[in-house]
Design a binder for these strands. Structure first.
Lengths: 319, 319
DNA sequence: GAAGCCACTTTGACTAGGACAAACTCCATG
DNA sequence: CATGGAGTTTGTCCTAGTCAAAGTGGCTTC
């Protein structure tokens, strides 16, 4: 989720008398935080689509009943999957759920993946940790990432859209995978050779997991990774390229990232760093792009990465 | 640095022609993300204090020149340190910087910390990693967190505000510390006992490092941690408390987090989870709070954590 | 001199609707 | 099949007020 307004949190409605069973009516600021829809958007939708229709408190301020907030959450989830608000906001909650179910592919998981999903659902944290560790050992880091973590992350995302996973379950999953992968990366790191690869995402792209998967695969191949975390502004990427004598910039884009912005950002970056520094772009957003971008390698699958490293080495024998 | 706004992607001003030397004029949304001051506040200050005084583009929309943004950053930073806007917003930039310098303690770093800062500045990534690893080994996880990572993070933040560190240098630092701490947490995890502690931050609070420091200390004390990463909505925290049979909810707040929001969010959370589940709140924002919040433990220093765990255990002997 | 209380000041989160550009959709043309 | 243009959708920006909560400071009282 991404919100635009940031700090606004209304001290207003939110705390009706703390004691009794309260109706849990939320102020506009609370809904913003909860759903990730900015206050401007909430008011705009009310005007345009006549939904939501919040009640008003003594002071004429909006207060949202829980069922409307729930519907807003579902709509937001579907929007993250590419639906446009106008098309879906009028639908009944039940139809929305049906739509979410049909928009994801529920089937086709092998038993391993299904078993892990079940552990998350059952909140079996220690077992989950252990199972992930086991699979890493059995498959090795490379196959663990491509065959397990990749599909699993997609499955978790799908389940979340269908409302089968709560936000906190998805957060917990993300956190556990991060732990496992970071650990594996630390162990695999050793002989760092060329190429030197800078890893990050553009601003407003918070998807860390993709980046960590990429880092894992690159480290396995013995490349030197310079991870900058998420949301590095273009100008800063350019500075880092110089400071760290980088050979390749690898960028990750989640499905939620707007195609155009990705293409524009990549072109701008291409223009601002030396031609002999390669740019690799990957992630669901990139997979959607039709046309190629001059001077940018579009990575459509994680499997390509080892090969890209090999090719780079072949092209730069003395490095 | 920590940024509060999360999703806003202003397609407006920000990307003037990529090629030439651009003037770097920012739209109000961009300034919001950059400084952490909401659009409402930026417009309000303009009306009340006659600062900032943004220019206007062809369409009458505000565009902020870099020097005003810089001053806004400094003002925000001082506010995070407890100054009130009305008192400082009229001061000249030079005076503000002087005030900021006197408010941050530049001196007093021991040589160890200074040496690490120097490694970051010099972009010596392998040496940085090695040095952090060494210090962890020498000090042990607990002292490493309280005596090294804590002060170091503050020093990096201070240096960033003074413009001595680039964004990418700060990102790299954050990423390295994350690697080291996550690794240490994984190794320290073993006999997990009571209490079961849920760890997260509120929405729009992205400061992961604080959370990881806390997790490290708790794991050392043998507590069971359920880390949810950052930005979990209040309602989800409540659900997670039930699902994971949590004894304590620990929340981390960076300096950039607005006090009011923190207090309101904590009160709301307090009302929505069972009374026998404790709430511990910590971080720079909490250190600023004057009044206590009913039913919430305000943790003003990392050192308190082990003691809190001990006290919890004493109060719940059979757990 | 510390503690409590009150009035005053400061502050920012909310209210309203209108305007416009970027992004998306769709269709026609090369 | 793709490129270009027209029309639609969408969200961010604008205006200007209002009011509650937090902070400040002075007063009284013990």
């Amino acid at each position: 989720m991404e919100i635009s307004s940031e700090n606004t949190h209304p001290p207003r409605a939110e705390s009706p008398r703390a004691g009794g069973e309260r109706a849990l009516l939320l102020s506009i600021g609370a809904v913003e935080r909860d759903t990730g829809l900015s206050k401007d958007v909430l008011r705009m939708w009310e005007r345009r689509y006549a939904f939501p229709q919040p009640l008003r408190d003594d002071h004429g301020e909006r207060i949202y009943p829980p069922d409307q907030v729930a519907k807003l959450r579902t709509v937001k989830r579907l929007m993250d999957r590419g639906f446009r608000p106008g098309k879906i906001i009028g639908m009944a909650p039940a139809d929305l759920d049906a739509l979410a179910a049909s928009a994801t592919n529920r089937a086709g998981h092998d038993d391993e993946i299904e078993a892990i999903l079940e552990l998350i659902r059952a909140h079996q944290l220690p077992e989950l940790r252990q199972r992930l560790g086991q699979m890493l050992m059995r498959q090795g880091l490379q196959r663990f990432v491509t065959d397990t973590v990749g599909p699993l992350t997609v499955a978790v995302g799908d389940a979340w859209v269908r409302g089968e996973f709560a936000v906190f379950e998805e957060h917990l999953y993300t956190e556990q995978i991060q732990g496992v992968l970071r650990n594996a990366i630390a162990s695999a790191q050793g002989h760092s050779k060329a190429p030197r690869i800078l890893l990050t995402t553009f601003p407003s792209e918070q998807h860390r997991l993709g980046m960590l998967m990429v880092e894992s695969l690159l480290v396995v191949d013995g490349a030197t990774c310079i991870p900058l975390g998420t949301e590095t502004p273009g100008a800063e990427i350019a500075r880092a390229v110089g400071a760290h004598r980088v050979n390749v910039v690898a960028l990750s884009f989640s499905a939620a990232f707007p195609d155009r912005q990705a293409a524009a950002g990549l072109r701008e970056l291409r223009a601002s760093i030396p031609r002999d520094v390669e740019i690799w772009a990957g992630g669901s957003c990139i997979r959607r792009l039709r046309r190629s971008i001059d001077g940018v390698v579009l990575v459509r699958s994680l499997d390509q990465l080892p090969q890209l490293v090999t090719e780079w080495r072949a092209a730069h024998p003395r490095a």
